[in-house]
Amino acid sequence: MEFVIISVIGVLFGCGTYLILQRHLLQVVVGLSLYSHAANLALLVSGGLKRGNPPLLTTDAPYVDPLPQALILTAIVISFGMTAFATVLAFRVRQVYGSDAVDELAGGEE
């Protein structure tokens, strides 16, 4: 099972990279979201997949490793905050800068 998910992670990373390299800010934001989904899946894989019940002590052992889940939860919240900020930023760039094309944001090195 791990290898299936690892392949999916690879695909998500590929798609994310492709989107981040696009011209449109919205695509970049979506690309970053794909990145974080993929990273969360990677964390999930690190605890092993389909190797036990949910780590609720009311159910029966064996349980899966609860730590990656806790880490992912933290990561989800953080990336939610980041994505929210990035989205509003992109939208403000569109408003103030008048463009949401990434290559029009070039410059500023001189």
């Binding site: 800010l25 974080s36 990561a75 990035a86 760039v93 800068y97």
Partner: peptide
């Protein structure tokens, strides 16, 4: 500011993702 923030945000979020990986 917004322009440079976009660059900074994108690069750092990429790095953060790889941190998680």
């Amino acid at each position: 500011q917004l322009r440079e923030t976009v660059k900074y945000v994108v690069i750092n979020l990429i790095a953060s993702t790889f941190f998680l990986i």
